[in-house]
Amino acid sequence: MVAPEYYLLLAAAVFCIGLFGVLTRRNALYFLMSVELMLNAANINFVAFSSYYGDLTGQVFALFVIALAAAEVAIGIGIILVLYRNFGVTDVTVPREMRW
């Protein structure tokens, strides 16, 4: 069995890469990709601890997180589409009001 530290370090690295993307990227598509990286870092932790402690619940939770990430991307792409139609850009810093 691979030691859990390796999985956790991998998850921490993926999470930090996602965090860097969220903090720096302005393009909404890159932004969504970065959020996905952060969610998948959580999934790595779920599966690693599920395997380590012999509890399937973590793997089932990882499936739910994947499903919720799909829902988030569906809505996110729709919002990006509306953003592009209304402003002509996919820059998340351009819209500054909830209503326009």
């Binding site: 069995m1 859990p4 530290e5 956790l8 370090l9 921490a12 690295a13 999470f15 930090c16 890469i17 965090l19 860097f20 903090l23 599920s50 395997s51 380590y52 402690y53 012999g54 509890d55 399937l56």
Partner: peptide, 24 residues
């Protein structure tokens, strides 16, 4: 900030005790 967070997480992970592995 991201590198700092990774460093903190890495130190915490490497110093943590995860108990006895059970395996599936």
């Amino acid at each position: 900030a991201s590198l700092l967070l990774f460093g903190v997480l890495a130190v915490t992970i490497l110093n943590a005790d995860f108990g006895t592995p059970a395996g599936l």
